[in-house]
């Protein structure tokens, strides 16, 4: 209960087999940047098309050429995101570059229907006058950073790229210490975090944190910290051995 009431940017989902996954929902700024990138890509495509067609001008005539330009821009404007979001990566090139991806609220890849709804709703989101004011307002106001199109289609934009893990070698503990009691998943995770990030902290801070777990280590100060590192090492070895 209390845990749920806490503010978080992640969305926890429980899958059918009881495993929880967390979707890292993306906020408006990166999405805006992705849109800007896509706009540039589309403009480049459009200009290239215009240049090519203008060379063929003599064959088709001015009016026809203008019609073709309009058709190309129409297609780029309305179908460019749909085609890419339904595709393998679930993201337009701009989103892909920034490590974003469109998924269903359940975390599954989006369907064609959802992609169509999501992107046709852009027309509303981009109001007033292509400024995306409505989309931005909806994105900031909704719980999961959804613009109106996302709300209508039941989709989310999530961070797809994994953050680079901080790999700083911790000094190997003197001895692996067996964990005396059963620990929950979160607690094991905290233990692993302590091991992985210990080198980011000063010795004093490390001891300070280890002192919070005296029930587990049964000792304070340097002894407790070393024992805690030993336990983290032990659980790490256990889990890697099992695999």
């Amino acid at each position: 209960m209390e845990e749920n009431a806490k503010l978080d940017t992640l969305q926890t989902l429980e899958l059918a087999d009881g495993v929880s996954i967390r979707l890292r929902v993306s906020g408006p700024i990166l999405r805006g940047l992705a849109y800007a990138l896509d706009l540039m890509i589309r403009l480049v495509i459009f200009i290239a098309a215009v240049v090519i067609i203008s060379y063929l001008d003599f064959a088709v005539g001015d009016k026809v050429a203008q019609g073709i330009y309009l058709l190309i821009w129409f297609a780029l404007d309305w179908f460019y995101p749909i085609v890419f979001e339904v595709g393998k990566h679930g993201a337009t090139p701009g989103k892909l570059m920034l490590g974003l991806r469109v998924v269903q609220v359940s975390g599954a890849p989006i369907t064609l229907g959802q992609a169509v709804i999501r992107n046709f709703m852009r027309f509303i989101d981009s109001m007033p006058f292509f400024t995306y004011g409505f989309g931005l307002a909806s994105c900031v106001a909704s719980q999961r950073f959804q613009r109106l199109g996302d709300l209508a289609a039941g989709t989310l934009v999530i961070y797809h790229r994994m953050p680079k893990a901080v790999q700083m070698p911790t000094p190997p503990p003197l001895a692996a210490v067996q964990v005396p009691v059963a620990l929950s998943r979160d607690e094991l995770f905290a233990l692993a975090m302590f091991r992985d990030r210990a080198s980011l902290w000063s010795e004093a801070r490390r001891i300070e944190i280890a002192n919070q777990a005296t029930e587990l280590t049964g000792a304070e100060g340097v002894t407790g910290m070393n024992r805690l590192l030993g336990m983290a090492h032990w659980t790490h070895r256990q889990t890697t051995h099992r695999q």
Partner: peptide, 14 residues
């Protein structure tokens, strides 16, 4: 920098 999350988790475990 300060491992707040780890500290909090340890306190809860304790």
């Amino acid at each position: 920098l300060e491992g707040w999350d780890v500290e909090l988790a340890f306190r809860k475990m304790n």
